[in-house]
Design a protein around this nucleic acid. Sequence first.
RNA 1: GGCCCCGUCGUCUAGCGGUUAGGAUCCAUGGUUUUCAUCCAUGUUACAGGAGUUCGAUUCUCCUCGGGGUCACCA
Length: 465
Amino acid sequence: MVVTRFAPSPTGYLHIGGLRTALFSYLWARKNNGKFVLRIEDTDKKRNSEEATEAILKAFEWLGLEADGEITYQSKRDAIYAKYIKQLLDEGKAYRCYMSKEELDALREEQMANKQRAKYDGRYRNFDGTPPEGVEPVIRIKAPLSGEIVVHDGVKGDVVFQAEDILDDFVIARADGSPTYNFVVAIDDALMGINEVIRGDDHLSNTPKQIVVYEALGFDIPKFYHVPMIHNQQGKKLSKRDGATDVMAYKEMGYLPEALLNFLVRLGWSHGDQEIFSMDEMKALFDPKDINKSASIYNTEKLDWLNAHYIKNTPNEKLAELLEDFGVVLSSHDKKEILLDALKERAKTLKELADLVNEVITAPTEYDPKASKKAFKGNAIAILEVFANRLEEATELHLPSDYHHIMEKVVEEMEIGFGKIGQPLRVALLGKLSGPGLDIVMAVLGKDETLSRIAKAVLTHAVDD
RNA sequence: GGCCCCGUCGUCUAGCGGUUAGGAUCCAUGGUUUUCAUCCAUGUUACAGGAGUUCGAUUCUCCUCGGGGUCACCA
């Protein structure tokens, strides 16, 4: 069974890059009827916060990504790590190192000065004398000093590291006894049964160390997939400084979860030429072997397009519900179907949709001067008055087509083009020259409100002249 | 600097020795629309460079250049 995981450290909100690797892991587990588990890497007590964990969970909920089973918290697993540290110590695969921080720093400086790479020199590897006074030891693992370590990566292929280039006896437990990252990751992944690790390729160079731990403990090494970074416009790793990397910010901006997910799944992964993926399609088609090798630049143009697409394809009932977060309440509006059908074609975000709704249902408080000037030329006011009269006489006005017929009648009666009535009417109803079809606007507003807006515009523009 | 990864239109990508190098987005133009948007059509734009291998390289190898990642008692 395929078991994947997402293992964030709760130092802030869930960010776009993390979400993408989480999504990949989630999809791969679902595709294989496997498990996707969540582990919170909260061992850095200074930087972690409970709110951050909650923020991550909240984002998962918004996006509909469910993790399987209980959430694992590293902070509650000290006893487990201690047990394995002891085991390695007992087996002679790890040892106490009494080198002080100052000594270590000095060694590093010397090595740097000689243009050598900074590397622990193994001075306590086979130490059996009396330890120096006053130094709490760290625990180091005996890493291979030569030979090669190969990461069989599902994205990058086999990546070969020379032990002498990159390894030394690295610390697995600090002086205060707390275990270090590369040690606990390997243990947790092994114990949680994770056999397919999908993560950012910034972890690729950590992987040999983790392999050392797996091997020392006799655990099976999982399959790794190191997915390329998402870069910002400057070509650097996307970080929290880059703005709009908080997943929940997208909710506030009016993006739909399915749009964000679709956008992210196509960043660094593809399935031929297909652009639109429903969640079911993603689950059916995702395969990490199709992840590409190069980093991609974060650019939201396509996200806007996808979001517009998903808004168009969202049922009005659902849209009305979502719009409430943006201060628009349509649930009781009897013409909301007509209104949303017309407006959802025009919005890139829910925020924009909310604005568009307001532009229709709220009477204009002012008229765009340029629009007024252009629309209220010649006998525009007379035309509007005729139109208002015909509207007044009419009964049974319900559908946009009912209003359209009246416009047609006036156009015929006065022998004018459609624009002659359309433009002033548009300014009267909306205050500007763009917007949805007037018949739709009028059907939504109803006869009384339409007449009232026309009357006000006529009055205003008559005074101007 | 050492080690590792990467390099196809501005951006996201297809391609897996022979293609007029495809799609999407963006942009531009035209059509539809009383307007704007949608929608439809059309168009501009790419294999980083150089050596090989080969009858033939975007594709394989090497070098150069460029970009990125990582080098902790952080995760």
